[in-house]
Simulated scan of single mutants.
Amino acid sequence: MTSLSALTLPDHTQLPDSDGTFVENLQEHPQSILITDSIRPVLEQLHPDGQYCIGQDSGIYWRLTDPPEKGAEAPDWFYVPNVPPTLNGKMRRSYVLWKEYVAPLIVIEFVSGDGSEERNNTPPSQGEGGNVGKFWVYEQAIRVPYYGIYEVAKAQVEVYHLIDNTYELMQPNERGHYPIAPMGVELGIWQGFYQNAELPWLRWWDAQGNLLLTGEERAEVERQKRERIVEKLRTLSAEQLNALGIDLEMLD
């Protein structure tokens, strides 16, 4: 049965990679970049072989329907461990569960409306016109262990953990963050500037409560550290610098 399914069911190259709708919120793109950029060093440590996949507003096909896109959900962000980022040398157009059999570890939705769509728990038998609620799909069909609902308008994030096949709303820790134990990180809200906008951004922290920085932020930290070192060296005499083998002109 497995071999027959593999031959007859479509893969990511045969399924639509868009339903033709617009992104509803201009913050969604930079928000996705922010959490992707800052989590990559952690994922590279977890997966030194590079076997992981990140999706950003990409379809997860969980059932075969007509039209095909009705059988997919497109989270704003998701992470799948232990799967290759490419297939046959090509970037994935979507993530097809019947070809992978590995569910995402976490999906995150960025709320553009009132949040009802992201919390819709309607099962297939009750969905009007065959529509199924996102919440139900992630909980009962795809069975994603962690589901985050981020609402910038309320400066909050809800995180649900799948326990005994049912989502339970997690409670924040003492830092106001939500631990994602398999990744060794925490998810929470950070108020600050990113890409010239001050907003309550969704961000990662490590298990000790240290903010995970983007590549640009890490470079800025190193630049400031270097400037402090140079300033301290400027207070030394020429003899002291010579004794240390340091040429200040080389550091400028």
Rank of each mutant, 00 (worst) to 15 (best):
E222C: 08
T122A: 04
L202A: 09
P84L: 03
W98H: 14
V23C: 05
Y167A: 05
R175Q: 04
G20C: 14
T8G: 00
R93A: 13
I33F: 03
H29E: 08
Y194M: 09
A72S: 15
Y138D: 10
L236P: 06
E174P: 00
I163Y: 08
W98G: 13
P200W: 08
F193C: 15
L43T: 01
G133K: 02
V80Q: 01
S32R: 03
W201C: 13
P48W: 01
R63F: 02
Q126Y: 05
G55Y: 04
L241M: 08
L244W: 08
A103Q: 14
E174C: 01
L244P: 07
V159Q: 02
W136H: 11
D76K: 05
L87T: 11
G55C: 08
G89R: 09
T21Y: 10
N173Q: 01
A72E: 04
I180F: 00
P182R: 05
Q224E: 15
D247S: 11
M1Q: 03
T65D: 14
E158R: 04
D49N: 09
G115C: 03
V102T: 15
G130Y: 03
V144G: 06
D206S: 05
Y167C: 06
P104Q: 07
G50A: 04
Q208I: 02
T235K: 13
N88W: 13
L26W: 08
R218A: 15
V83R: 07
V159D: 02
N121S: 09
G148N: 05
T36A: 12
Y178W: 02
S18C: 09
K90P: 02
H47A: 10
H29I: 11
V102C: 14
P48M: 01
L46I: 03
G215T: 14
Y146D: 03
V152D: 07
A6N: 10
R143A: 13
N131W: 01
L64A: 13
V152T: 07
C53F: 15
W136V: 01
I108K: 06
Q31K: 04
L4H: 11
L15S: 09
D252A: 04
L251H: 04
